[in-house]
Amino acid sequence: MSEEPKLEEIEFAENPEPRCPCVLLLDTSSSMSGSAINALNQGLQTFKDSLTQDDLASRRVEIAIVTFDSKVNVVQDFVTADQYEPTSLSAGGATAMGTAIVTGLDMVQNRKTQYRENGITYYRPWIFMITDGEPQGEAKEIIDQAAQRIKTEEENKSSAFFAVGVEGANMDKLQAIAARAPVKLNGLNFGEMFVWLSASMQRVSHSKVEEQVDLPPLGWGTV
């Protein structure tokens, strides 16, 4: 990421609403190519459409997208839902999941610093990872470090990490990495999953409820 001064911070003057950050970590390794990546791309559009139906959520929920294959790409830095324009993702390569997790967690911490510097209040960030495999092409230490970070951040309530396994995902491995139980997606039902994610983010961004928000029921997968 560049170290140049960012004029974008003026966005906080234009939109002083409290922010509800959500990072999507998306597996774009070769096994995702074909119908899976198409369904995921459609799902992202559904996510945007669903969030922007709610005026407050569209100005409070911030989306960032990190893809991981052989390398990790920040394809979308944090933008509010109303500013987000989904781009079409393509798949190919290995699965640098551990690096992606650390990238996502770092982005969230940096974003919180930006909020504080600009006097913006915020909700607990969410990190939502979708994969159809397991870490591949990465040193074990990187994966262990990622798992440890998730565990620490969940304990400190610094962020909430959710893992979703598409058909073919190593659910045991996901269980070992994520502190929460991973969810197995039914088929390629990304549409319904993103509608759920949108509804959950709306609930969080409207909440004023200590810290426990009741999430909508999972209609799109199983724990």
């Binding site: 409290p18 209040t121 915020y122 909700y123 607990r124 309530k157 969080v204 909440s207 004023k208 409820v209 200590e210 810290e211 928000v213």
Partner: peptide
Amino acid sequence: DSGEYINQTTF
């Protein structure tokens, strides 16, 4: 009086 997150408070 709120915690780190805007939706946290004391009752």
